[in-house]
């Protein structure tokens, strides 16, 4: 054996202290869930030992059972579908309005002077304070929820799109103009990609507000959806279903964020922050 072979052989023979590499069980994937799992454990122990009364807080087991019951009856899937559709509708309507206004005001001085002050004033009105008015205007149908959710999503996306467009690197814009870009080309090649990181911040923030607004509007006036499920359960003191609804909101919120982040990673692959 030559020296090199010996060395290679030796390296193979000595077991390296490599961590177990299962794709879904790596430390990176598991670590964020350590704290929730620990909380669940404490909660379950507290419930079983009688330390936490199940009139105040049902045990995780009871919540799991509620999940099983609502899921097997089909009611849960229906409620999630209804809430999900409302959320998406609100995101699309409010998000597109906020996005277009943000673009317009970022690009055009005139448009900014015309609308920015108004938008800033509207933004500071807590949109949930509009609920009495909204019920008067739209009744308790879908329109009211769509209105409120859209309003909630609109402002974070507007602000961040506007901010992103205004902060596109001046040097790059000058370069683009010198190299013959204008109008649509300038927008497509420089302004939009330059504003995109900020737009994603707005999107992720808007998603959070979207769920928040939807929960509130569903628990005030609705005949279906997760918010309705929780509100209904409250009236019958079914704490397990109330907690289940909360957990589902948490899961949906997380899911939305995961999707947004995946989209972000894909769209911003050029950004060193997203490169490995």
């Amino acid at each position: 054996m030559t020296l090199v072979e010996t060395l290679t052989h030796a390296r193979k023979a000595t077991p390296q202290r490599q961590p177990l590499r299962l794709p879904f069980l790596s430390r990176e994937v598991l670590l964020p869930y350590l704290l929730p799992a620990l909380l669940l454990l404490v909660w379950q122990i507290g419930s079983v030992s009688g330390w936490i009364s199940d009139r105040i807080m049902p045990s995780p087991g009871a919540v799991l059972l509620a999940l099983w019951e609502t899921a097997s009856s089909g009611a849960l899937a229906n409620d999630i579908a209804v809430s999900g559709a409302r959320a998406i509708a609100g995101l699309l309507v409010g998000g597109s309005i906020g996005f277009l206004l943000g673009l317009a005001n970022g690009v055009s001085r005139l448009s900014e002077q015309l609308t920015d002050t108004t938008l800033q004033m509207l933004r500071t009105v807590p949109h949930l304070a509009l609920i009495p008015l909204v019920i008067l205007w739209f009744g308790i149908g879908e329109e009211a929820k769509l209105f409120l959710t859209s309003l909630g999503v609109l402002f974070p996306i507007y602000l961040n799109t506007y901010h992103g467009v205004r902060n596109v690197d001046r040097d790059l814009l000058e370069m683009g103009r010198i190299y013959g870009m204008s109008g649509w080309t300038l927008f497509r090649k420089i302004i939009f990609p330059g504003a995109l990181p900020s737009i994603f911040v707005g999107l992720r923030y808007g998603l959070g507000i979207m769920w928040l607004t939807l929960i509130v509007s569903e628990s005030i006036a609705a005949s279906s959806g997760i918010g309705h499920m929780a509100n209904n359960a409250r009236e019958f003191m079914m704490t397990d279903v109330v907690v289940l609804a909360l957990l589902i909101y948490a899961a949906l919120g997380k899911l939305a964020d995961v999707l947004a982040r995946a989209l972000e990673r894909h769209a911003l692959a050029w950004n060193p922050v997203y490169q490995r």
């Binding site: 990609p193 911003l268 050029w270 950004n271």
Partner: peptide
């Protein structure tokens, strides 16, 4: 400065 478009 190079002024390259980072997204291209």
């Amino acid at each position: 400065e190079p002024r390259l478009l980072p997204w291209f």
